[in-house]
Structures are given as C-alpha cells and as structure tokens.
Amino acid sequence: MFSIAEKFADDLKVYYKMMERFEKHNFKSSYIKKIKDGIKDKRGAEVFKQVDKLSSIIDSISNRRNLFYIFFNILALWDFQNIIALERWKQKSGHLLRKWFDALGKIEALASLSVIRFENPDWVIPAICEGDETVLAAKSIGHPLLTGKRIYNDLAIDSKIKVLLITGSNMSGKSTLLRTAGINLVLAYAGAPVCARCFQASLMEINTCMRVADNLGENMSSFYAEILRIKKIVTEADTGRRVFFLLDEIFKGTNSLDRHTGAKVLINKLCLTNSIGLVSTHDLELCELERENGNIANYHFQEYYKDEMIYFDYKLRPGPSTTRNARYLMQLAGIDVESSGECE
C-alpha cells in the first residue's frame, strides 16, 4: 500500500496546485461554475484541501526511507498510524477522486480551446450553417498542427459537388488534406477558431476511414477492418443524417479490379445520400466518375523535380493527377528499378 501511494507523490502536488487555482478563482462562465459546483461533496469541503491532506499522508509515508525512521516506528508504531490515516482518507474522500479528475479534464480541455484564439489571432471563427443544405466551404484552410511549413488551400463541397476525389503521387499531401478538413471541422463544432481565412459548415456526423490496421487478436485483416468501417459510414448515411466522410486510399488491401469496382459503387452510393466528403486514391481510373456523375469533382496534387530531387508544393489543383513518382522514390531509396533479371 505504501509503495503504491508513493508513486503518486509528485503528481498529487501538481493536482493540488491545479485544483487550488480552479477552486479559488471566480469564474463568470455558467458552464465552468456548474463544473466547479459538481465537485463539491455534501460537507462542502474544498477539494484542494482534501488533496493536500492525501499529499501530507504520502509525505509521511515517504519518511520511511529515513535512516532513523525505524527507531521512531518502533516507539510510535508510525507505519500503523500512516495506514490508518490513509484508509480513513480513502473512506472519506477516495470515492470522489474520479469526479475530481473528470472535472480537471474538462477544465484542461476548455483551457486548451480558449488559448487557440490568443495564440492564433489570424484564425477565423467558423460559421455554422443552419439551412437544409449540407455544406463545407473554406478559404485558405490549413492544418492546425503544422506551423512553419503550413500550406493553405480552398475547399468547396455542397449538395451539387458532394465528393472531392483527390489524386496525386506518393507524399504529395492527399492524406494531410483530409486531416486538415477533419480537424478543422472538429474545432468548429467545439466552438473554437479554425485554421482558415473563411470557414462555414453544416452540422454533420464526422466519419473517417483512415489508418485502418489489422487485429491479430480478433483475427481481422486490415481489409476487413476497412470494410466494417465503411459499412458503418454507409449505414449512417442511409438513415438520412448529414454525414461528412473522409476516405483515405479506400480498398487498398485488395486487387486493382475489386478496388476500382468497389470504390466506384461506394462513391456513387454516397452521392445518393445527404452526405459530403473527400476521397483520396491512387486509382486514376476513378477520375472517370466526374464525367459519369455530376456530384463528383476531381482535384489533385503534383510534384516537381530539381537537381535529381523531388519537391512538393502541396497546392490543390482542379482535375485528375497526371504524374506518378513511385519509381523515382524507389530509385532515391537506392532500389534499382531499371535493371531486370531472369530466373534460371
């Protein structure tokens, strides 16, 4: 028991200071006041004092490492005194710990959201559209977590153009664009500024199929995990809800024919629902969907070469991709793709 308690000695000192600051500050926000009132117990005891009491008990336990403690313990039975004090604290306040930490978590989240405006005064407050149309429109939108190398692009998705089909070579910025749209939409729904010059969006359910991995414990391949994720998106879209979807390299775990056929059927099906989103792909044959379906628009990223090096500008351009760089990247990695050999 003493060993477990001592592990949290340093953390408790931090929590004590945070809780003291939280309880002593006079907040104007009714929501924060509600959180503050929610951590009080029936006795009205201040939480930071109860945390300080536990910290003092653990400090007393830590004195066991003192060379002279053994003599004091023999005379005063201090180990028993400490364990009794610890058990009394647990009975009195231990059941409230989870509630205290949940409250601190909410305050930390609010503090993180509130500081965005001060650290990024050029970010815009998003406009939430309350009409019947499902829309996401942004001017000069960038990834919030990128700083020095942030690139800005424009996005426009609505009931006319429901799907942006993003093509481009490897490392060109397709997945980053999808994350850019998703993270900024989450920030908008949280009431925070977004990394854009202009941003408006409807209230939508955000669904993604990105970075799907296999699960050996459940005997599930990455392809089947992807199928289950997409099934969830389609099921939710079929209910008539507004869905914003981000599909990154869909059906990459199967052969090219099945991938092309499955992606084509899926995208056309999503266009029939009240859903909008972005789909990234290396399958250039899917770009033919723009001619077959007026709700789909092709966009792409491209690279350029200089001094035998590959560079990207990460700028989104209309139309399908016309470049490929897989072979060049393999050559840069030292893999000779020009030579060929025959098995004897």
Rank of each mutant, 00 (worst) to 15 (best):
A103M: 06
E133S: 06
T134G: 10
H95P: 09
K53C: 01
T134D: 10
G173A: 02
F71V: 13
P126G: 12
S112W: 13
D154E: 10
F101W: 05
A156I: 12
V47S: 03
D132H: 09
Q50C: 01
L77V: 02
L113M: 11
R65C: 00
A156D: 15
L75K: 15
A103F: 07
K53V: 02
I107W: 14
S169R: 05
K53R: 13
S175G: 01
L165T: 06
V135K: 14
G44K: 15
M171L: 07
T167C: 05
F48D: 02
H95W: 14
N120A: 08
L54W: 08
K34Q: 04
A45C: 10
Y69W: 10
E87K: 10
W123K: 06
I161E: 12
L177A: 06
V135D: 07
F72Q: 15
I39C: 08
A127N: 07
I157W: 12
W100I: 00
N170Y: 02
L75Q: 14
A76S: 12
L104H: 06
L77F: 02
G148C: 00
N66E: 01
K90M: 06
A127C: 01
A111G: 12
V124Y: 11
S55W: 10
P121N: 09
D154N: 13
V47W: 07
Y69E: 07
I166V: 12
V135H: 12
G44P: 15
S55H: 10
F71A: 13
S169D: 06
F80M: 08
K34M: 04
I166D: 00
V124Q: 11
G94M: 09
E133M: 02
A45H: 14
Y152I: 03
K162W: 10
S93T: 03
